[in-house]
Design a protein around this nucleic acid. Structure first.
Length: 367
DNA sequence: TGGAATGATTTCAC
DNA sequence: GTGAAATCATTCCA
């Protein structure tokens, strides 16, 4: 074959009659004797190519050599290049314009929102803000947790960018390698710049699918990190013993109506020093909600506890009255009211009869 | 380490 | 909006 690379170049020539792919330069002088000669030559060459597969290996080899040395070979090569360009590439070209992958767009948006991709802004400030909001204000230990969160997010970001760089580098290297290979191959077969371009885009698509996996994994890592640090349930801390005592004291001293008012909840929250993850009144509400339902479900189990707190309350009350002052427990708007009685009655329905009798007598003593 | 205890959330009814 | 009930998820403890 010819030693010169035969990279195809785009032609705008009109195809030869009967051979739509044949370029203009192949048709020059078709009216003269020289033109007739060329036509004859090309006809011969085409005939030889068509029959080459029917020949033996040696014959075909000899024929190939003869064709390579033929004076019309470069012209024929160009014709083949044009035919290829006009048929194969034009068909495939229509498929190349693909819309952006929605999945990839989602991943990109998420990584951007989380501060993993895009400009660094303190490592997921939006997420950190969300964390602060979720915890009901930033306490000292919250900020410590947030800095831990930011540090881990920063690690993810660093790994992501390192891997991304690696992929891009590998992609560039591979693209260059393939381009060189194609240039090399263009010496022996028709390859157009368009074809190389298409090959490059295929490589890029392959690498972008790998990148998508990287983005997917990064998103998953961020999600896990978020749930680990930002899920409020994970922030649950048991109340300390003192707080539990205060709440229990209130609960059992208002057993007839264990529904503290908003003010009482606030006061209880203050007394229990409920801050941080346990958000003030809400935590108190949760505590009372849980306590009521669990007490109601299993009064027997809580009986001993109830007796103990009732005794303690009685002692406190006696002390208070002897000192001429009121009991130091948060007020309740309608304690021992109708609602309270109803609540206790409904609770009594759930316990065995003997317990009911005991509770009733206990209730009557309290009132 | 498994089960109990417990704080928080969700769903539903009022 | 509040409370009941169910459920989840974490913490505690034998």
């Amino acid at each position: 074959m010819d030693e010169q690379p035969r990279l195809m170049h785009s032609h705008t020539g009109v195809g030869m009659a009967g051979h739509p792919g044949l370029p203009q330069h192949m048709q020059e002088g078709t009216g003269g004797t020289d033109g007739d000669g060329r036509k004859q030559d090309i006809g011969d060459i085409l005939q030889q190519i068509m029959t080459i597969t029917d020949q033996s290996l040696d014959e075909a080899q000899a024929r190939k050599h003869a064709l390579n040395c033929h004076r019309m070979k470069p012209a024929l090569f160009n014709v083949l290049c044009e035919i290829k360009e006009k048929t194969v590439l034009s068909i495939r070209g229509a498929q190349e314009e693909e819309p952006p992958d929605p999945q990839l767009m989602r991943l990109d948006n998420m990584l951007l929102a989380e501060g993993v991709s895009g400009p660094e802004k303190g490592g997921g400030s939006a997420a950190a803000a969300a964390a602060a909001a979720a915890s009901g204000g930033a306490g000292a230990d919250n900020s410590a947790e947030h800095s831990d969160y930011r540090a881990k997010l920063s690690q993810i970001r660093q790994i992501y960018h390192t891997e991304l760089e690696k992929y891009e580098q590998a992609c560039n290297e591979f693209t260059t390698h393939v381009m060189n290979l194609l240039r090399e191959q263009s010496r022996t077969r028709p390859i157009s710049p368009k074809e190389i371009e298409r090959m490059v885009s295929i490589i890029h698509r392959k690498f972008s699918s790998i990148q998508m996996q990287l983005k997917q994994s990064t998103c998953e890592a961020v999600m896990i990190l978020r749930s680990r640090f930002l899920d409020a349930r994970r922030k649950r801390r048991n109340f300390n013993k003192q707080a539990t005592e205060i709440l229990n004291e209130y609960f059992y001293s208002h057993l007839s109506n264990p529904y503290p008012s908003e003010e009482a909840k606030e006061e209880l929250a203050k007394k229990c020093a409920i801050t941080v993850a346990q958000v003030h009144r809400r935590s108190v509400s949760n505590w009372f909600g849980n306590k009521r339902i669990r007490y109601k479900k299993n009064i027997g189990k809580f009986q001993e506890e109830a007796n103990m707190y009732a005794a303690r309350t009685a002692v406190n009350a006696a002390n208070a009255s002897s000192h001429g002052s009121q009991a130091n427990s948060p007020s309740t708007p309608n304690s021992a009211g109708e609602t309270g009685s109803l609540w206790l009655c409904s609770a009594i329905k759930l316990v065995p009869p003997l317990f009911s009798i005991f509770l009733l007598s206990f209730y009557l003593r309290l009132n």
